[in-house]
Design a protein around this nucleic acid. Structure first.
Lengths: 252, 252
DNA sequence: CGAGAACCGCGTACACTGTACCCAGTGGAG
DNA sequence: CTCCACTGGGTACAGTGTACGCGGTTCTCG
């Protein structure tokens, strides 16, 4: 029973009733932090730096935001708002899910730092909730709520894990301060060592032969995406009875 | 052309030729850091804390490790070594991949902090490379290298994205310093607010009805895993051909 | 065997982080 | 008018990663 008066950032009103007019605003601060994080990574978005960006003193930010973690939640939810799902249950579920997936991927590539933030149900902001509502609405008339969750987890998992891989590289290149070519070159000796050892024939094949020049990353993503959508289309998995034997399916 | 003499941690020998005998070792330091990270999270594993754990001065660690980032790479690779893939191309590809997936998931659940570290090809340590070699060896005789990569990306993506979700909660609960129940309770007002607004009927349905009590998380994982394996079994995707892959339910 | 170099553990110091606390000033409520 | 809740923000503090340099130890080589 430490701090009983804790409240989530989404329930904490931005402006109280009385007093002088604030000079800044939550969205202004969030936007400034976003600009810095996009340009130089999340760790560059320090409180002092953000404050400087909007011409404020460092401690002024705390009049608007309880702490840095909450600010990051605000930023993350701002990003969810970038995914365009207006009018989403359109009737064509496949087109709808494709649009969601493309939007999610685009957002990740635009804001690589999102890979480093943990999101839990507590941090669901208005944009995140609206996104869930819209996207789950797509399959809601067709499947049970549990199946809906499973299928969307599969879809989102696909998009995020592919994006995470791409974005991880971008992050690390930036952190090194080198150009991408220089950064790659820096790793060659190690790779060479592994290849020359002769102990890893399949790994060698992967490095040397894989990823022929025939498909760009976007094309690969799209192809894989269609296969995930195929998987969804392939028909709902066994209705409510799970696997082969439905012995533990009895109602409790 | 800043620091031309940079070398990867994996190419940097632990001990030079001459001089007095070191009192500690890389593995000892890595193990200590691991213990702290497992117990209190990665951010608790500071250089001073690790040094104290093994009874050394903070700066002594830098005789063994270039910096904290490299130490984290050592830790991550140590974790990869926990995944048991001995004698892995056994002939039964399905059993092999299941074993890999179970091992990967187990490792994640044992070391939740792995969710916060970015791994790129440059950081592949010996255990990671050996893991790749073994696991890719499973499907290598059956499919092309590109298909192999795609299929394993799907499998690994499934395991990691489900584990990431579970583990994210654990992380956040710990960071709050509360019990899991208290932490959950802290979020209720917000959820209640969303539900009471009436604007999110599907979200409400999700919160109220989803995840019936019939399946534990492990069971859910295993069920989903079998479906991913089914997908792999379903036959190789159309070669380089575009979409419209109308093969749905392959032979079972 | 003795000298010098290479290495050891580690104390001090620095730049930087998030943020607690405090201040003087401001402007709406009574 | 008087309150006083609020404002922006300066100072301060604990804690971070780590550069630098010290005196002591141990190996190599003449």
């Amino acid at each position: 029973m430490a701090d009983a008066e804790y409240v989530n950032i989404w329930m904490r009103p931005e402006r109280p009733a009385r007093g002088p007019k604030p000079a800044y605003s939550r969205t202004q601060i969030t936007e400034a932090a976003l600009r810095i994080a996009d340009a130089e990574g999340l760790e560059a978005a320090t409180m002092r730096r953000i404050a400087a960006e909007i011409g404020a003193g460092a401690m002024s930010l705390y009049r608007y935001i309880p702490g840095r973690d909450d600010l990051i939640e605000l930023m993350a939810d701002r990003l969810m708002g970038e995914i365009d799902v207006a009018g989403l249950p359109s009737g064509d579920w496949r087109a709808d899910l494709r649009r969601y997936a493309d939007g999610l991927r685009g957002m990740w590539l635009r804001h690589p730092w999102i890979a480093t933030v943990n999101r839990s149900i507590h941090s669901y902001g208005p944009n995140q909730v609206r996104l869930i509502e819209r996207v789950m609405g797509v399959l809601d008339p067709l499947v049970s709520i549990d199946e809906n969750l499973d299928l969307l987890a599969m879809l989102t998992g696909y998009v995020e894990s592919t994006a995470r891989e791409e974005v991880g590289l971008v992050q690390e290149v930036r952190r090194s301060g080198l150009s991408e070519a220089e950064w790659l070159a820096r790793g060659y000796p190690r790779i060479r060592q592994l290849l020359d050892s002769g102990d890893y024939p399949i790994f060698s094949k992967m490095v040397n032969q894989a990823r022929g020049p025939h498909l760009s990353r976007d094309e690969q993503f799209r192809y894989g995406l269609e296969r995930v959508l195929d998987r969804i289309a392939a028909g709902l998995p066994a209705p409510a009875g799970p696997l082969a034997d439905d012995r533990e399916h009895g109602p409790r």
